[in-house]
Design a protein around this nucleic acid. Structure first.
Lengths: 202, 202
DNA sequence: CTTTACAAGCATACACGAATGTATGTAACC
DNA sequence: GGTTACATACATTCGTGTATGCTTGTAAAG
């Protein structure tokens, strides 16, 4: 059955991206064939190669369709004020958002568990690194301000606190995608953030 | 050139496992062919199929050759006493060990970044889950004792503390393998553990 | 102490399927 | 009538698994 109008073609594209999420999640990116994805979307490989150049392009399109925790963390940490408590709120909001946005959760899980980082030159890995650095830099700025206000503990530098917060958040998200049914991030996330900030406070 | 004696055959086996580590690290598990690994070890695929049944068996053998952080964490947390400070030391020791043991670091990196978790029924994933549960249970026991001694903060349950500690450790290790040259785990690991324990203490 | 048979430890050759990329066909829209 | 949006068909590559060949250690037999 041929999609005729432009809107129907767009539907096919979206269906392919949706199918990619589920197939990648189930079989892993490397082990999933374009045939699998096409069939899951109710079309053939012809449709896939019409909309996307190849598997990598499909993967990238799927990736760019969602806003992942680290993107959101950076954006919100930029705009939502510099205060200590505001940063806490941002962290909690980002975690909660991942639990609520099923699509973001799927793609994030794929990136963490179902996808190999091949050569470091891969655009995916590079961008990931840059995001990480930006987030940590942003954290460091906020913690430096807090440090000057005497809010930080005496033996914790702003830089250490920034890297530590990033590691903590990554840890929670990591544990969450590995057992989403056990670890309830909506309640445990805030608690862990609370523990962390208590640990670095004066 | 044919390896003749039993010892030389064992050398070939070890060379294959070593080669597997480096090739998997570089190209990812799925993208690495047995041809790649054999050539990297200076032999042909014939040697690979003589020593191992297939790629999965080779992967498992490589995996079982090392002791990874979670194994060590469980063992040491079992034997090294139940005290609060002892647990801190255990966490730090485990982190430091990963930085020092190049082979363990390689395999751990492969498991985290270079290997897709395919079907959940895979033995690898299951064992990983069981280790995680055991470690957390062990943590919970120690924290329960600390709670009864009044060492724990009033609003943090032993269970929460256990999961939180696990997430924190995973976060550090995760960040470490992603940028080993930036994040110096030998100095930052202990600091983060310190922050965490300060956060949960009364 | 030599000879011989056999198996270990690989290398080489071959068959096979699976996935990819492309080329072509085809129907409907504009 | 041409282009869009696919389906279908084809060629090619790549990796796997297996079968076979070859060389050497090794142990039993004489």
């Amino acid at each position: 059955m041929v999609r005729r109008t432009k809107e129907e073609a767009e539907k096919t594209r979206e269906a392919l991206l949706d199918a990619a999420e589920f197939v990648f999640l189930e079989k892993g990116v490397a082990n999933a064939s374009l045939e699998d994805i096409a069939r899951s979307a109710g079309v053939t490989r012809g449709a896939v190669y019409w909309h996307f150049e190849n598997k990598l392009a499909l993967f990238d399109a799927m990736h760019e369709r969602v806003k992942l925790p680290m993107d959101e963390l950076f954006e919100r940490a930029m705009h939502d004020g510099d205060s200590f408590t505001a940063l806490k709120e941002v962290c909690i909001t980002v975690m909660r958002h991942l639990a609520e946005d099923a699509r973001a959760k799927r793609v994030f899980t794929i990136l963490l568990l179902k996808c190999e980082e091949t050569c470091p030159a891969q655009s995916n890995v590079e961008r990931q690194q840059q995001k990480r650095d930006k987030v940590i830099q942003r954290f460091e700025k906020i913690f430096t301000a807090a440090h000057q206000d005497g809010k930080l503990g005496p033996d914790t530098s702003p830089q250490t606190a920034a890297i530590a917060l990033h590691a903590t958040i990554c840890g929670v998200l990591n544990d969450y995608v590995r057992n989403p049914e056990v670890l309830d991030i909506a309640t445990l996330g805030p608690q862990l953030i609370e523990i962390f900030f208590r640990g670095i406070s004066a």
